[in-house]
Amino acid sequence: MNPLKIITCILCLLLFMPFFAVAQHAGLAIPDITGVWERAKDPTAPASQQAQLKAEYFKEKQRLVQAQSEANANGMPLATRLMQCQGDGMPGMMGGPFPMEIIQSKGQITIIQEAYTQVRRIYLDKAQKALDDIEPSFFGHAVGRWDKGVLLVETIGIKPEVMYQNMPHSEQMRIKERIYFATHEILRDEITIEDPVVLEKPWTFTMSYKRMPDYQMLEYICEGNRYFVDEKGQQRMLSNDAIK
């Protein structure tokens, strides 16, 4: 064969290899997403939107952000749930910045966020429960199914006080996710928050991950928290005397 043709063939192969890889993943009814993942850059991801809150909730969030900003400027930050070692809940736990382990088992996908040892269970091929049958919680009740290589998940029943990026939400919030391989290496989670009470329209943003092939998850126990909430709702560190 003409050497020029061989080089052209190799270049074409290299150029289209990522598409073959994606096609290979997408073609699988159930791709292998088991493993440890960390947040990754994903330049081809759909642009994340800003949430459009209804006027009263926009003002509520503005007040909170302003209060936090002023408290930070005074060196006396407001207390948060994370500061009290309560974890992010959904959807914050999908955002890292710690590693996250996904385990696929029969009828269930389990996601463990290393920070605060947060565990989320997605029940596969089950009907979603009615809101009245769910006790509000940090991670809610999640059901999912595979559709042509895309894991479709719906989560409801998140406690109102479990807020992502200071965003208020109602009991009617539904978190819908599309989890799929964007490339051979990038796992993408397109998250859409639906909340007809609080949001003007559904809010979509993306989180992307790459594998940590050799990483073994570490334990995370909040055993040495020196912070507490004072009577003004501010973050305070225990005094040396209290530690002793």
């Binding site: 930070n72 948060t80 928290n225 912070y227 973050q235 560190m237």
Partner: peptide, 21 residues
């Protein structure tokens, strides 16, 4: 302004607590 403030707060809360102290 609200978006910028939100980003600042988001950065500040990447850790267990704010480092604004």
């Amino acid at each position: 302004i609200w978006v910028l403030l939100s980003l600042c707060i988001a950065n500040a809360t990447l850790a267990h607590h704010s480092f604004a102290v």
